[in-house]
């Protein structure tokens, strides 16, 4: 394997959990809901995924359990924000806090155990292609799925009736309601979708990235995913670009160190965050694009009586 392929493979691993979580949150936000609990859903996905895979010995079960863990947390959020109409910002923060604590408690029995790794699915013959073989055709199922998800979500949001409804609910919930759509139900569904994606991202961490359970192993990735959604101006293909941009900057910080370049490690570690902020500014600056795609109702509770 060449040095170039090795770097690309490392970047793919670093970017996939961000991409998965961000694309889910994008759908949630398109429906007008801001769920700041991505970190909490992700970490629950990680612990549930690990626990199930370890107990059953099957990483696929782990993926399923991770997904369900994320959905469970997201439904808690949905119940509070949609049914009880609590503040979305506060509830999202609470979800993160609860997720970090709860996952630690559940995971106590699983610390210090080697996990079951979700292995790559090598596509025969194609994987032997020079240069791109292992990059394009030697990945695990979640990597392939993350790319498929970008395509599916793009198609769904802009080409289908479902997408139309989601955008309508996020754009103006009163008109959507007047048109006869059940705003709350649509939002419940979109929140659950976001939870599922965050759960998958968490499962990716505990089954592929580092196949073991470690407290707080999401280490802030949920927040990065949230930033990526804003950075993307709510466009799925831009989430893809953003996730891979972040992953590249992250890995390059380590890469140049190994080459012997003397830059303080702290500066390299802070680069991804600085790049994210810069990207946020650049994207926010593009007024027309932002205006077209920003869900106008984001963060606002919907009460049909009003």
């Amino acid at each position: 394997m060449g040095a170039f392929e090795a770097v690309i493979l490392t970047i793919i691993t670093a970017s996939t959990p961000l991409l998965l979580a961000a694309i889910g949150e994008l759908v949630t936000e398109r429906a007008g809901v801001l769920n700041l609990g991505v970190e909490g859903m992700m970490i629950m996905g990680a612990v549930c995924g690990f626990a199930a895979a370890y107990t059953t010995g099957s990483p696929i079960f782990g993926v399923g359990a991770g997904l369900l863990g994320g959905v469970g947390m997201s439904l808690l959020f949905a119940f509070l924000t949609q049914t009880l109409m609590t503040s979305q910002v506060a509830t999202g923060l609470a979800l993160t806090l609860l997720g970090l604590g709860l996952s630690g408690l559940i995971g106590e029995a699983f610390t210090g155990l080697p996990g079951v790794k979700l292995g790559p699915i090598d596509i025969p013959f194609l994987i032997d292609l020079p240069f791109v073989g292992s990059i394009l055709f030697g990945q695990d199922i979640l990597v392939y799925f993350s790319f498929a998800l970008v395509a599916i979500v793009t198609y769904m949001l802009f080409r289908t009736r479902t997408g139309l409804i989601i955008n309508a609910v996020g754009g103006n919930h009163h008109s959507a309601h007047a048109l006869g759509y059940d705003v709350v139900k649509v939002r419940y569904a979109c929140i659950a979708f976001g939870g599922a994606c965050s759960g998958l991202a968490g499962a990716y961490l505990s089954l592929v990235y580092t196949p073991q359970w470690i407290e707080n192993m999401s280490s802030g990735r949920g927040w990065i995913a949230l930033a990526l959604v804003a950075f993307s101006s709510w466009l799925p293909r831009r989430v893809l670009v953003g996730a891979y941009l972040f992953g590249t900057v992250w890995i390059m910080g380590l890469y140049v160190q190994a080459l012997g370049v003397a830059i303080p490690a702290q500066l390299l570690s802070s680069l991804p965050y600085l790049v994210t902020i810069t990207a946020l500014i650049m994207m926010s600056g593009d007024k027309t694009l932002t205006k077209v795609n920003t869900p106008a109702c984001i963060g606002q509770p919907f009460a049909p009586e009003r």
Partner: peptide, 8 residues
């Protein structure tokens, strides 16, 4: 990540 970069 560091281990992967080094091996790469």
């Amino acid at each position: 990540d560091a281990a992967k970069v080094l091996i790469g």
